[in-house]
């Protein structure tokens, strides 16, 4: 088995780590960097609980070997708020009570953020399509769809650019 020195930028902070070739990004984030936002759900890419941002794109940290993410900029749910203030998407989730048990929420919030980066004015069908890869066992999708709509509307009203997502 090989070991590798890698550098990740996680939530804006650069970290250097030595990882084994079979160590997964999710486990590095949770167990070594103590960022427990991203969750272990199914482990095989079906449920989306482990979703994180790679740059501005959502990816599944449960099946990315950490060594393959060398050099990446990663954002987890913990990195969305700035100076103690929730991001537009997070605030919309709170305001729409789009959270039930909360297990899927970090992945949902990350996926919603990726959607708005890609498409600042998604319609309902586009939102639903984006949520194809994120399961909510409480089935609280209706409120989440509303939350994404509200976040998109607030961004537009404020004339925010997507840097502020």
């Amino acid at each position: 088995m090989s070991v590798h020195d890698i550098t990740l930028t996680v939530n804006g902070r650069k970290v250097r780590l030595t990882v084994k070739s079979n160590e997964l990004l999710l486990n590095v984030l949770r167990d070594r960097l103590l960022l427990t936002g991203a969750k272990y759900g199914c482990g095989i890419g079906e449920c989306g609980a482990c979703t994180v941002l790679h740059g501005r794109e959502c990816v599944l940290s449960c099946f990315i070997p950490a060594v393959c993410a060398d050099g990446w900029e990663i954002t987890t749910a913990e990195g969305l708020s700035k100076d103690g203030k929730l991001s537009v998407v997070q605030q919309a989730y709170v305001d729409k009570a789009a959270i039930q048990c909360g297990f899927c929420t970090p992945g949902m919030v990350i996926a919603s953020t990726a959607l708005l980066y890609e498409n600042p004015e998604p319609d309902e069908a586009e939102i639903k399509d984006y949520f194809r890869g994120n399961y909510c066992r409480c089935t609280g999708y209706a409120a989440m769809i509303e939350a994404v709509k509200v976040a998109a509307m607030r961004m537009k009203e404020r004339g925010c650019d997507d840097e502020e997502l």
Binding site: M1, S2, S21, N22, L24, N27, Y40, G43, C62
Partner: peptide, 14 residues
């Protein structure tokens, strides 16, 4: 089957 980890060991080359 534990899908939380990869049990198998291997060399990684890029």
């Amino acid at each position: 089957m534990n899908t939380m980890i990869i049990e198998q060991e291997f060399e990684y080359v890029k």
